[in-house]
C-alpha cells in the first residue's frame, strides 16, 4: 500500500506551507520588529499629513520602529504621533523628529535626528522638537505663482 508514502508527502507539503505562511506573516508582514521588544514615545507635530499608522521610523536611514496611533491633541490642535521603537535603541531627550518623504512621490516616514543629551527618552515621553510634514502642494503652488522669493524676503 502506498498510503504511508502519500501521507508523508502531504505532511511535508503542509509543513512547508505552514512555514511559508508563518514567514510571510511574521517576518515580511511585521517587518524586522517581531520578536524584539518595543517601547513607545510620542511626538507632537503641527501637521502629520500623509503619515499613517504603520509608517516607518528611521534613524540615519536605518529603520528602528513604526508609527502607532495618530491622534489629535484637542488642547492645541496638534497631531500626537505614537512611535513604537526597538528597545535596544536609546534616544537622547533632545532628539528631533521630522516627517519626511522617500523620493519625490514615496511613502511618508518619521526621521529621528538624535541630539547630544546624556539623558535618554523614557517610554511614554513626548518629543516636542519636531518638523512637520513638508506641504509639497503649497510649495509647488508658491513656486508656480512666484511667491518663493517674497516669503524669503519677509
Amino acid at each position: 500500500m502506498k498510503q504511508p508514502k502519500l501521507e508523508l508527502v502531504v505532511g511535508i507539503f503542509v509543513l512547508a506551507g505552514l512555514i511559508a505562511v508563518a514567514y510571510l506573516a511574521l517576518k515580511i508582514g511585521a517587518g524586522s520588529l517581531v520578536g524584539s521588544e518595543t517601547y513607545s514615545v510620542r511626538a507632537r507635530f503641527t501637521n502629520s499629513g500623509g503619515l499613517t499608522s504603520g509608517s516607518n521610523v528611521l534613524v540615519a536611514g536605518v529603520p528602528i520602529g513604526r508609527v502607532g496611533a495618530i491622534t489629535l491633541n484637542p488642547a492645541d490642535f496638534s497631531a500626537l504621533v505614537e512611535l513604537k521603537l526597538e528597545k535596544v535603541v536609546k534616544l537622547p531627550t533632545d532628539t528631533i523628529a521630522s516627517i519626511k518623504t522617500s523620493g519625490l512621490i514615496g511613502d511618508k516616514y518619521v526621521g529621528l535626528s538624535p541630539g547630544s543629551d546624556t539623558a535618554f527618552l523614557a517610554p511614554g515621553a513626548t518629543i516636542t522638537d519636531t518638523e512637520a510634514a513638508l506641504d509639497i502642494e503649497s510649495l509647488i503652488s508658491r513656486f508656480a505663482f512666484g511667491n518663493v522669493e517674497k516669503k524669503d524676503s519677509k
Partner: peptide, 11 residues
Amino acid sequence: VFHAVHPVDVR
C-alpha cells in the same frame, strides 16, 4: 520588501 508589507496585508 520587509518594510512595505503590514500584517494587515498578509491577513
